[in-house]
Design a protein around this nucleic acid. Structure first.
Lengths: 144, 144
DNA sequence: CTATTTGCAAAGTGTTTGCAGGAGC
DNA sequence: GCTCCTGCAAACACTTTGCAAATAG
């Protein structure tokens, strides 16, 4: 069990949620992922651990984990809904358009641009959402 | 017929697409909008002009207009798929979270940040997607 | 032992496809 | 007149809900 899984388990306990077979399986599937996965992808992975887990449970568990800020949903260009483990704080995502590997970008220096936009438009900006798409070193190499 | 509609019509013609009753209705619905609309919203608006227009045609026409870069899809926080008229070039969107009014932000000074991220990650970044959420002046006023 | 959680089945949404009739050029 | 486009219905995919049985604590 790695550090990520540890956090999941502790957070669930701290909030009085039971640690069931299905939840363990899904947590493991999530914690081991290096890229955002779709609901179906997660279901498939979780099934390897607990073959009985149903798709419905995946939906419900993701909703729960999402409320606890343990996972966060990512919008992929092609398929709208992906889920990835969330690291605390404000981050952005960089996703490889070939293999879908995901890197979290922390430290976001949009501040100045944001202020400029606020002045230009009169809006009060309360949030933003930034995603980068590109090629990871491996895929860039492979494409040559 | 305003300038936007003109562009729509010309682009369709230039690509050998027919200018049908349904397309006119949808174009009008789009061109008059100041905020991104959902499929259903567009369907409702288009129906005011051509009561016979079916939802299916809205889907198909939006797909077409999207291919021609005349509209672009926007991801709203709550409802995933919205469509807005696209102005040419690279822009970002600022959307009021209360009334959904949309402002296009042109001039995007992400360049430096982008380079930094490229160096940090080794990725070659080929695209990005930025959306701001906030309160427009009117709604900010109303909320007091 | 009790309350929560699960899995199944079924209902509900939103989107896409096949096809015959209708409209644009 | 010929082709492209539309509308309908039905198929399809994805997500949510109701409920009885299973299980964690």
């Amino acid at each position: 069990m790695n550090a990520r899984e540890q956090t999941f388990v502790e957070t669930l306990r701290a909030n009085n949620y039971k640690l069931t077979r299905a939840r363990r399986a899904l947590i493991h599937a999530l914690a081991g992922a290096s890229k955002p996965l779709t609901i179906n992808g997660l279901h498939a992975r979780a099934k390897e651990i607990d073959p009985k887990i149903g798709l419905v449970t995946v939906y419900r568990t993701l909703e729960l984990l999402s409320e606890l800020d343990l996972v966060r949903s990512v919008h992929l260009a092609d398929e709208c809904h992906g889920y990835a483990v969330s690291t605390p704080g404000h981050t952005h995502h960089l996703i490889c358009r070939a293999c879908h590997a995901l890197v979290e970008i922390d430290g976001c220096n949009l501040g100045a641009f944001l202020k400029e936009v606020e002045q230009r438009t009169g809006y009060r900006i309360t949030g933003h959402w930034l995603e980068f798409e590109g090629l990871c070193p491996k895929c860039a190499e492979a494409e040559k």
